[in-house]
Amino acid sequence: MEIHVYDTYVKARDNHVMHFDVFIASKDGEQAIQYAKQWLASIGENDAVVSSKECRFCHTQQAQAEVIETIKRQGYFIYKMEGCPA
Rank of each mutant, 00 (worst) to 15 (best):
residue 48 A to M: 11
residue 15 N to M: 13
residue 29 G to L: 04
residue 46 N to W: 07
residue 81 M to Y: 14
residue 11 K to H: 11
residue 80 K to E: 10
residue 72 K to H: 12
residue 40 L to S: 07
residue 38 Q to Y: 08
residue 60 T to V: 05
residue 20 F to S: 02
residue 32 A to Y: 00
residue 3 I to R: 03
residue 80 K to C: 08
residue 13 R to L: 09
residue 35 Y to V: 01
residue 79 Y to V: 08
residue 52 S to H: 05
residue 42 S to M: 06
residue 58 C to E: 08
residue 86 A to V: 11
residue 59 H to Q: 06
residue 37 K to N: 01
residue 61 Q to V: 07
residue 26 S to V: 09
residue 80 K to I: 03
residue 48 A to L: 03
residue 1 M to S: 03
residue 40 L to E: 10
residue 69 E to P: 00
residue 24 I to D: 01
residue 5 V to T: 06
residue 6 Y to D: 00
residue 6 Y to I: 02
residue 75 G to R: 08
residue 30 E to P: 00
residue 1 M to H: 11
residue 62 Q to A: 13
residue 15 N to F: 12
residue 50 V to H: 04
residue 34 Q to H: 14
residue 54 E to T: 03
residue 56 R to T: 14
residue 85 P to V: 14
residue 4 H to F: 14
residue 43 I to Q: 02
residue 55 C to A: 04
residue 57 F to M: 00
residue 4 H to S: 03
residue 5 V to F: 02
residue 2 E to H: 12
residue 15 N to H: 07
residue 2 E to Y: 12
residue 65 A to T: 15
residue 28 D to R: 03
residue 51 S to A: 10
residue 36 A to P: 02
residue 65 A to G: 09
residue 24 I to Y: 00
residue 32 A to E: 03
residue 13 R to V: 03
residue 80 K to L: 15
residue 83 G to V: 01
residue 34 Q to L: 12
residue 18 M to E: 06
residue 16 H to I: 07
residue 13 R to K: 14
residue 54 E to K: 07
residue 9 Y to K: 04
residue 49 V to C: 04
residue 16 H to E: 15
residue 85 P to E: 14
residue 20 F to K: 06
residue 36 A to T: 05
residue 5 V to W: 01
residue 72 K to M: 06
residue 12 A to G: 08
residue 13 R to I: 07
residue 35 Y to M: 01
residue 51 S to N: 06
residue 69 E to F: 04
residue 52 S to P: 01
residue 64 Q to H: 10
residue 71 I to N: 10
residue 12 A to F: 07
residue 79 Y to Q: 13
residue 82 E to K: 12
residue 86 A to F: 15
residue 30 E to G: 06
residue 8 T to D: 02
residue 40 L to T: 05
residue 64 Q to I: 10
residue 65 A to L: 13
residue 31 Q to Y: 00
residue 18 M to L: 14
residue 68 I to R: 08
residue 44 G to Q: 09
residue 58 C to K: 13
residue 6 Y to E: 02
residue 49 V to M: 10
residue 33 I to D: 01
residue 24 I to Q: 11
residue 44 G to R: 09
residue 17 V to S: 14
residue 64 Q to N: 09
residue 11 K to L: 10
residue 49 V to I: 13
residue 12 A to K: 13
residue 52 S to E: 11
